[in-house]
Structure formats: C-alpha cells, structure tokens
C-alpha cells in the first residue's frame, strides 16, 4: 500500500504550551456559574442569607438584635449551600460526564482538581463576605425599625474566624466530592458529617470519660465550633485542635480521594 506520510498543512502558530493554572482556575470558575443549577445555587446563598436576616428582624427578641445574632442566623445556609457548590464542582465531571471533555483537554487531573479547589475557595470567601455584609445591613435595618440600640458585638477577628470556619466546611464538602465522585452520595455524606456525627461524638464524650479529653483532638466540628462562638481570640491549643482534626478529617481523605481521581476511569 502507498502510505506516504503527507505533512499536515496548517498555518504556523506559536509553540504549544500547557495551560497555566491561572487559566484553569478561570475556566473552572466559569463552569461553576454557567449552568442553570450552578448559577441558582450561588444566587441562593444571597437569597437565603437575606431571608435569614429578615427572619431575625421579624422574630428575634429585641434584646438579641445584635450583629452576632445575624451572623449565627446566616451560618446555617452558608454551612449547607457552600459545601454543595464545592461538591458539585467536582462530582458534575462524573455525574454529568463532562469529565470526558475536561480530562481529555487537560489529562493532568490533579491540576483540574487544584483549579477547582482554588476557585471554590475564592467563591466561598466572596460569598461569606457578601453574607456578612447582608447581616450588617440587617443589623442596621433591625435597629432602625425596632428602635433598639445598634450593637456590633462581633470583632473583625471574630468575623475572620467565621470566614475560616465556613471555608473549612466548604473544604470538607470538596473533599467528599473528590472522595466519592457522585453528587448525591457526596451530599448525603456531607449531611451525615455535619448533622449526625456531632451528635454521636457528643454522646460518646458525655458518657465515656476517656473520650472527653480526646474529643478536641478528634472531633473536627467540636474543634471548629470555637470559630463560631464570638468569644475573643482562640488559644494556641485551640488552633492546634483545628489543625490536628483538620489533618485527620480533611487532608488524609483528600489525599486518598486524589489517588482515586487520578486512577479512576472516566466514561
């Protein structure tokens, strides 16, 4: 057979370089907004925090109309919705099968996961800051409407704690997305972690003396709960609790999940 290789004819172009991480981050951010579900999920943070703020003005006793009350009220929607955004940014590649395109355009899957993590955290930080601003507006409005004194009882440091705590929750969701790679499974796992595990570990701590001392070093949510107390700066040991429990519950499973992602079959 005549199989002479004909050189491929096309206009010359610059040398082929791998896509830089900054570009992948922009692409992943775009993908989080440009689906109908993704857009409304992110919009729902603003909607839910606004509703929670209005509920505080309407239903909270006048003596508790302080900034920290508003922040406590917006905590739940943030703890629920932010991690779901992070979960779906990962799992949709498998559940919606977009990974077939994503991972053929960029076969280095760790880079894609890194880009997703960075854009999830960036969107998370922005969302929490917007939520804190909505809470502040609510505090101003609440004081104006009810005639109660305006109380700003959350310091910038305590607000920063709130941001850190919210991002930790988001990263737990992200980790579960990487580990499980299925939307519903990861969301269910997150709810079990967020709402079932604290009860079990709390019960264990109250009934077993040996666990009581260990709990701050094992229970991530217990360690993390001090970030939401608005009770001044954390001690070095409390930060160490967060670091140790974070390593156990976040870094180790994330590392295992990354191995799965790199090896798993995309079909």
């Amino acid at each position: 057979m005549t199989t002479t290789a004909i050189p491929y004819v096309r206009p010359p172009r610059p040398a082929v370089h791998p896509a830089p991480l900054s570009r992948l981050i922009r692409v992943e951010r775009r993908k989080m907004f440009n689906t109908r579900s993704g857009f409304w999920l992110i919009a729902s943070i603003v909607i839910a925090t606004a509703l929670a703020t209005i509920a505080v003005i309407l239903f909270a006793p006048d003596s508790e109309l302080t900034y920290s009350t508003y922040i406590q009220a917006i905590r739940l929607p943030i703890a629920v919705i932010l991690p779901i955004i992070a979960i779906l940014s990962v799992t949709s590649e498998w559940s919606q099968r977009t990974g077939l395109t994503t991972f053929t355009l960029v076969p280095r899957r760790r880079r894609i996961i890194a880009a997703k993590a960075i854009s999830s955290v960036a969107i998370g930080v922005l969302a929490v800051l917007v939520a804190l601003a909505i809470g502040a507006l609510g505090n101003l409005a609440g004081a104006g409407i009810t005639g109660t004194p305006l109380v700003w009882n959350a310091s910038p440091l305590e607000c920063l704690h709130f941001v850190v705590g919210s991002i930790l929750n988001l990263m737990i969701g992200f980790m579960l997305g990487v580990l499980i790679r299925a939307s519903i499974g990861a969301v269910v796992a997150y709810f079990l972690y967020q709402f079932l595990l604290p009860g079990i570990l709390g019960l264990l701590a109250s009934s077993q003396n040996w666990f009581q001392d260990l709990q701050p070093w094992i229970d991530l949510q217990y360690a993390q709960s001090r970030l939401h107390l608005f009770d001044g700066p954390l001690t070095g040991e409390q930060w160490a609790n967060i670091a140790v429990t974070g390593a156990i519950w976040l870094l180790i499973p994330l590392t295992i999940g990354l191995r799965f992602v790199v090896r798993s079959e995309v079909k």
Partner: peptide
C-alpha cells in the same frame, strides 16, 4: 477528541 456527544452538562448552553 469526541467520545460521546451526550456527555455534556444539560444546563449549559
């Protein structure tokens, strides 16, 4: 590469 034209997010244009 085109492996499966249906493997796209239904909610994306």
């Amino acid at each position: 590469v085109l492996l499966d034209a249906s493997a796209q997010h239904a909610g994306r244009t």
